[in-house]
């Protein structure tokens, strides 16, 4: 699954570490999500959506679409 996390983070001039602190996860996990190596759970995806004040489907893009 693709995602726009890196772009959204860059728009806010946040480092991976800044985003990790906001989400209460490790910087390595932010990197894993951004690179598409790991797809977050639904609770974490909702948390990310709330943080960026966007619907989940605008952050995470299903490759089938």
């Amino acid at each position: 699954m693709d995602n726009r996390l890196k772009v959204l983070r860059a728009e806010r001039k946040w480092s991976q570490n800044d985003l990790a602190i906001h989400l209460d996860i490790s910087r390595q996990s932010v990197n894993a999500i951004e690179t598409g190596k790991y797809d977050p759970s639904l609770p974490l995806a909702f948390k990310i959506a709330r943080l960026f004040e966007m619907p989940i489907e605008e952050i995470f893009i299903d490759k089938i679409d």
């Binding site: 209460d24 996860i25 490790s26 996990s29 790991y38 977050p40 974490l44």
Partner: peptide
């Protein structure tokens, strides 16, 4: 105390 990616 580890996050979900670390668990994965």
């Amino acid at each position: 105390n580890i996050d979900e990616a670390a668990k994965e």
